[in-house]
């Protein structure tokens, strides 16, 4: 019997009422995060990655939003909890890291004060204890000379250092789950490498699970155990990283992987996905990818359900034989 999941998202639906009509930002997302598992969510801009995880955290503050489905954290339903009930969970048992570290930091307080406040809000520490722990945490995330830097302001840090501070804050309460939305997208590759390395090291020592959102398939391949590929708010494919990357099943995933220019070898021509991303106001009733899919069939006007063998699932009407034929023709 495998460990019961830390996080279990079931049929999440997030719809915004807009002047132009209902906008389905997330439409039927389901996945589990096991203890110590790293789950990567990938997909193009607007595919609903951020909105889905903000909904999980109860952070979509919009009067026009309608959220349905179920989100269980350690077995407890947390969708629809009040801000007050979410308070001990957010920043406590669930840590958060955003693309822009300044989302989580305030420019007017020192970084040490901000980490200490977070600690005091979620534990019974005294001011002095919290400050000592803040210094310890800054050291753990690789900030040199933490005793001196603890009294500095965020603007005195580089982008990579600020992201380290945010990670220190996210980790301050030994979270069970870390949710990171594009944590390295704004950073250079050498800094990205430092941050990703740090996240994995800390995940190991704190035994936490991670959900990482990114549009970079390479980051997913290096970090994630499990991948969720999203298209137009829906999961197109979900499976173990190695299966999704080496043996992708959904035509959208084929396009996504073929479009990546590699550092390790040169490909003469990149695969492209024809057309543009669908408008979120105008997602087809059937397969959301149908308008751009070169394998579209009559049945694709009906919505394909996520299905598959074992843990590798996808939402596409193509049969196994059809996929085999298509893939054996596709030359690398």
């Amino acid at each position: 019997m495998p460990d019961s999941p830390i996080l279990s998202v079931q049929d999440l639906q997030v719809t915004f009422a807009t002047r132009q009509g209902p906008l389905r930002a997330v439409d039927g997302l389901s996945f589990d995060v096991a203890p110590k598992e790293v789950v990567g969510i990938v997909g193009e801009s607007g595919s609903g990655k951020s909105v889905s995880m903000y909904s999980v955290l109860g952070l979509v503050r919009d009067a026009n939003v309608q959220i349905n489905g179920s989100v269980k954290f350690q077995g407890r339903e947390i969708l629809g909890l009040s801000d007050q009930e979410m308070q001990p969970i957010r920043g406590g048992e669930i840590g958060m890291i955003f693309q822009d570290p300044m989302t989580a930091l305030t420019p007017v307080y020192t970084v040490g004060w901000q980490i200490a406040e977070q600690l005091r809000a979620h534990s019974g520490m005294t001011k002095q204890q919290a400050r000592e722990r803040a210094i310890e945490l800054l050291g753990e995330v690789g900030i040199p000379d933490p005793r001196k830097r603890v009294d500095r302001y965020p603007h005195e840090f580089s982008g990579g250092m600020r992201q380290r501070v945010v990670i220190a804050m996210a980790l301050s309460c030994n979270p069970k789950l870390l949710i990171a939305d594009e944590p390295t997208t704004a950073l250079d590759v050498t800094t990205q490498a430092q941050i990703l390395d740090l996240m994995l090291k800390l995940q190991d020592s704190y035994n936490s699970s991670i959900v990482i959102i990114t549009h970079d398939m390479g980051v997913i391949a290096e970090m994630a155990h499990k991948v969720v590929v999203m298209y137009a708010g829906r999961p197109a494919e979900i499976g173990p990283e190695i299966d999704v990357v080496r043996n992708p099943r959904h035509p959208y995933t084929w396009g996504l992987l073929g479009a990546v220019p590699r550092v390790e070898s040169r490909n003469d021509r990149l695969t492209t996905i024809p057309g543009n991303a669908v408008s979120p106001l105008d997602i087809p009733e059937g397969c959301a990818f149908a308008d751009r899919c070169e394998y579209r069939m009559d049945i694709c006007t009906k919505r394909p359900q996520l299905k598959g063998t074992n843990s590798h699932l996808d939402a596409c009407w193509l049969s196994d034989e059809q996929r085999l034929t298509i893939r054996s023709k596709a030359v690398r």
Binding site: A221, L257, R262, V263
Partner: peptide, 9 residues
């Protein structure tokens, strides 16, 4: 070059 995330496929 060594730190560019690779697809590893």
């Amino acid at each position: 070059l060594s730190v560019v995330p690779e697809l590893n496929d």
